[in-house]
């Protein structure tokens, strides 16, 4: 019996590496990513370096007859892309992938969204569930691509019940192989925080996240699911557990500090600054119930695991060759920041 084929997008990323390891025994894997595979790493299966919107993508679906698709390829805001480029890649890219999945009768699609779509808001209640509104783009328009990616996937799943679509909204994913901004931030020695604020954060270990994706792939249900780790922790304590020192910065200096961090190699998105102010604590009750998910590592252990790792050679897990943000747009964005804050 041949094994079912699974398409993994964003295959060059850190999370995809772990997901591929988890899935390779059970499925035949095909990976795609607009970025090249990092040197010294091999994808356990076929790998193609293509943009999701290219026509070649359809041919891939035609020839491989995928059973399932795991869409991990959301370009983060930290990637030095223009807002419109990021929007096109994320929203239109996801849309065309889902359309292909429908056309070529892919049975299930797992889409990796993020808890950022809920937005950090002072009126946030505790335990945000999947039904709560997505407020993120209310304050910062930069995050609209993530919100729209989520919306596109949810709308797709409602319109096409034949394709089992699971949209996962995980909390901060951390781990030694993850190169997202939060992991890089926590690996640092000096971690800027906002003076006077110390919100509660959640984290999920990379292995737990990969396991959650496997559960979603093998499960029967479809829908939107929050995914979080074991505990909730105050940001300053999280920083200390991962071996850093919190450096409180007054709010009015936050933009300057983020710009400074950019020079130090950490391209931290400005629109996430509210997450350092207000808690966004999500509940993954439904995911636990419907898919039998249970995090294996505790939040404290997941944070401590970051400490052991030395700083990576190339900071900033940014998407490779991409034009830098042009100065006028940067200025525009900054203006927007000022008016919204």
């Amino acid at each position: 019996m041949t094994r079912a084929r699974v398409l993994i997008t964003g295959a060059s990323g850190g999370l995809a590496e772990i997901v591929a390891e988890v899935l390779q025994g059970k499925f035949e894997l095909v990976g795609v990513d607009p970025r090249p595979m990092p040197e010294g790493r091999e994808f356990p299966g076929k790998f193609y370096q293509i943009d999701y919107r290219q026509r070649k993508m359809a041919d891939l679906f035609r020839t491989h007859e995928f059973e399932a698709m795991v869409h991990l390829g959301r370009v983060p805001a930290a990637a030095r892309l223009r807002k419109t480029q990021r929007f096109n890649l994320n929203v239109l890219g996801t849309r065309s992938l889902l359309d292909l999945a429908l056309k070529y009768k892919v049975k299930s699609c797992i889409v990796l969204s993020t808890f950022h779509v809920y937005g950090a808001h002072q009126h946030n209640h505790l335990y945000i569930s999947e039904e709560d509104p997505l407020l993120a783009s209310q304050t910062y328009s930069e995050i609209v691509d993530a919100v729209e990616l989520d919306n596109v996937s949810v709308a797709f799943s409602l319109r096409n019940p034949k394709v089992r679509t699971v949209v996962l909204r995980p909390t901060n994913i951390i781990g030694k192989r993850i190169m997202n901004q939060i992991s890089l931030y926590l690996r640092g020695n000096m971690c800027p925080t906002l003076l006077g604020y110390d919100p509660m954060w959640q984290f999920i270990d990379e292995n737990d996240m990969a396991n959650a994706i496997l559960l979603a792939l093998e499960g029967k249900k479809s829908g939107i699911y929050n995914v979080s780790g074991e505990g909730v922790i105050a940001l300053s304590h999280a920083i200390r557990l991962s071996g850093g020192n919190p450096v409180p910065v007054p709010g009015f200096l936050s933009n300057a500090v983020i710009t400074g961090m950019k020079f130090a190699g950490l391209n931290f998105p400005k629109h996430l600054v509210d997450f350092f102010k207000y808690p966004v604590v999500i509940s993954d009750k439904n995911f636990r119930k419907d898919f039998g998910y249970e995090p294996k590592s505790s939040t404290a252990d997941a944070l401590r695991a970051l400490r052991i790792e030395a700083l990576p050679d190339i900071p900033g897990g940014r998407a490779a060759p991409a034009p830098t943000t042009d100065s006028t747009e940067a200025a525009e964005e900054e203006k927007l920041q000022r008016t919204t804050t």
């Binding site: 505990g231 909730v232 105050a234 604590v281 939040t299």
Partner: peptide, 9 residues
């Protein structure tokens, strides 16, 4: 939780 906090902080 393992972190010594309850979800409300």
């Amino acid at each position: 939780a393992s972190t010594g906090f309850d979800p409300w902080g």
